[in-house]
Design a protein around this nucleic acid. Sequence first.
DNA 1: GTCTATATAAAGATAGAC
DNA 2: GTCTATCTTTATATAGAC
Lengths: 234, 234
Amino acid sequence: MADDTDTDELGIPVLAKPLSASGRKRASITEAAIAEFVQRGYTGASVDSIATRAGVSKPTIYSHFGNKQRLFLAVIGGYLRDSYTDLGPRADGIADAPDLRTALVDFLGAWVEVVLREDIMTLRRLVIGEVERFPQLGEVWARINIVHDDALVRAFTALDQRGTLQVPDPRAAVRQLIAMTIGAAQLIRTFRPAYRFDDGELDALVTSGVDVFLSAYAGFVVPAAVVSRRRRAG
Amino acid sequence: MADDTDTDELGIPVLAKPLSASGRKRASITEAAIAEFVQRGYTGASVDSIATRAGVSKPTIYSHFGNKQRLFLAVIGGYLRDSYTDLGPRADGIADAPDLRTALVDFLGAWVEVVLREDIMTLRRLVIGEVERFPQLGEVWARINIVHDDALVRAFTALDQRGTLQVPDPRAAVRQLIAMTIGAAQLIRTFRPAYRFDDGELDALVTSGVDVFLSAYAGFVVPAAVVSRRRRAG
DNA sequence: GTCTATATAAAGATAGAC
DNA sequence: GTCTATCTTTATATAGAC
């Protein structure tokens, strides 16, 4: 058993830093398990195969992690946490950027490139597919999203106080902005892993999302979004 | 083998209408297989268990569907197609509704209630989790979404021609509206199956999404979204 | 077409030696 | 702590009788 390992508040075992020979084996098991689980899913993955990949015997895995479920939670939960903790660009400069529209487009454009990475998308599909069996992983994901959103929430709160934006509910506004840009792109690739965005397609998607957002919350219509509209209306 | 069954353009076997005794068995296998796959996933489901649920023997299943993969594709693909073909409210009245905002809120509110149903969400998670193994299912899903979006696309195109809305790219606009409302709600429940929306929470989410949409594409700010904003700006 | 019975392989997990 | 060897169960798939 491995009941002596600590777990965080979501039940994800927190692994100690590997140092000893035993620690190195544990690390190699972790690495092998991530690869196997990501590739074949929870049920499809076999402990045998993980042992072979890691270059250890099966009982070694069981002595470290107890059983397959604990192994999955520990390695995938930890992988999630570590991957996303410092993932994506920082939003710190946005509140003070000279051109808000450009700053948002750049920020969201960089972010969407990260979340559309194959490895990230595959991990995402794995977690979604297993979330009814392992609800803790969904909670980890939700928490990570909140943390990531916070940067934009702070920026919009500041901009609201300065009067640059009028955002009564910053968190809701952030959710809307992200849904229109990142969420829309992610949704396509969630169901169509092979889909490739054309040159400029992602850009247009992000830009028009930002424009809709600004036209609602900045109280003005941004040029590019509404050329045809100005013409028509005028 | 079951190589004599027809398949549609996505490779999903099209099942003939069940009539004979053999047809009834086939139908009961289909029903049992859907339940088993939805409950345990593709790899976790066992043909043994499906046979028991259906009250038939294992060879009967293999004689009808060939192997487990074909069985999965046939029943889940068919279930997807049938479930979603006439799912959700009709958007036909929207272009001619006296109050566009109310019509959109009602329409999207009804729609989001359907897509958040447990059985629909579970099916969605299953498809996402298996989409790398069965890309056809993702294509089916994408096609269904396009069909569903079309109703709104037509409505916005008509409203654009009449000048009620200014929507240069109706399909992109529909995607944005749906992302902010349905997509945002769906995303939460995708990772948190146990999450329950408060009374009014879904309503607020949908309404504020519609308001952002209208403020961008109708060229005016709708009352409820911006009370605090009018005050500030005035 | 459908069954019983079975072939064959692989899974999760552990006993016991070192 | 880690290994070899093994237990037990369950999986997909099929042969052959009716």
